[in-house]
Design a protein around this nucleic acid. Structure first.
Lengths: 214, 214
DNA sequence: ACCTGAACACCGTTCAAGT
DNA sequence: ACCTGAACACCGTTCAAGT
């Protein structure tokens, strides 16, 4: 007398499959192409089937961000001075997100839901703690690094030095914008790696000075 | 024998009015409420009238960003050491955008079209030049400051320390995230001004160290 | 020239119906 | 339980028609 009740029909999808399909769509069609209908088609199911796994389109976006950020390697790099270890951790975020530039605009709004970011933050706090940071200063250092990496990644993909913005800069009237016109020349020779790394250098130097203070 | 040709009917709107109406909508209804229909209604015209002034919804967003960023005061602050002058310029961007937090997500994508940003950049370059920066280092310093301000403003409005993210942090399992749990306590006592200013301090200290180098 | 409203091709999401 | 398709209330934008 088994099966008195109807057997629950097994789910045909996992959240991981859903996230993977959504990321495939974003990589192929851009962020504007990420629609419930497109993801349903990508999975070979109806559009409405997605709502069994996700409350919202926003939650779907959250899954995509999670998938990308969970790939950030957060194992603490050893055998290096602490500023170099911070650099490695920050560069890993850039590497993971750089592989999926179309997802970058979603990053700020959904950052908090990703376990990957939590692990990464814990690793950064570990290095900062060893370097002697605690209390308010440690909070500010973590948030400062996070602000820089978020801003720099967006600038890299939405307004790169190699792009049209620099050309516009170079064509600015020299009477009103002498330094912008001059800087545009130099900007053309700065690659994205040098730009990101250079700015990070400044920030890390600031942290070193900060830790030496008192 | 005047008026051989039909008099061109005068435009009933200016781009400035359009931008102001759109900003009113965004401030009242949020970014999701910014639709062509809503802006048309706000102006008392038909939806389609907007297309006489703007090619696109994207161009409308650009006008909003312009309106907000053009209010950034870019007159160089005098009588201060150069790092303090940079601080004043950066804080002014925060002040102007902080008055319209819903616009913040549009900032990165439309940053380049705003004359206000160009004037601000020229002012920042002026201070950096006086401080002895030139060539690649000047480019990197400008972009680093821009990255920080963009990232920090977004973090402030999309994931503030006072918000739910910090509560989640505090509730994290101490076995896996001992430092996050500990840091959440300190984070609750850091206000947005202290956070933004503290991170900016680190960056400015890094620039000072950078300029002393060689 | 400038403005309008209907219409088209999309969205996300609700809901009743199927298995 | 889980999945489906029709339907609803929106979008941005095209186009023909009005003044």
């Amino acid at each position: 007398m088994y099966a008195v009740k109807a057997m629950p029909r097994p789910r045909s999808l996992t959240p991981a499959q859903l996230a993977a399909a959504a990321l495939t769509v974003v990589d192929r069609d851009g962020l504007a192409g990420l629609t419930m209908r497109a993801v349903g088609k990508e999975l070979g199911t109806s559009t409405m089937a997605l709502y069994r796994y996700v409350a919202d389109r926003e939650e779907l976006e959250g899954l995509v961000v999670e998938l990308v950020l969970d790939r950030v390697d957060s194992t603490p790099p050893a055998d290096l001075p602490w500023p170099e270890r911070l650099r490695v951790l920050v560069e890993r975020v850039r590497a993971a997100t750089g592989a999926h530039p179309a997802v970058v605009p979603l990053f700020p709004a959904h950052r908090h839901r990703s376990p990957g970011v939590l692990r990464w933050s814990e690793a950064v706090l570990g290095v900062l703690t060893e370097a002697g940071f605690d209390g308010t200063r440690r909070v500010i250092a973590l948030r400062g690094l996070l602000s820089y990496v978020i801003g720099a990644i967006q600038l890299e993909h939405l307004g790169p030095l190699s792009g049209s913005g620099t050309v516009t800069m170079a064509q600015l009237p020299r009477t009103d914008f002498p330094l912008m016109a001059e800087t545009a020349q130099a900007a053309r020779q700065v690659g994205p790696d040098e730009e990101f790394g250079g700015g990070l250098d400044v920030l890390l130097r600031g942290l070193v000075a900060h830790s030496d203070r008192d």
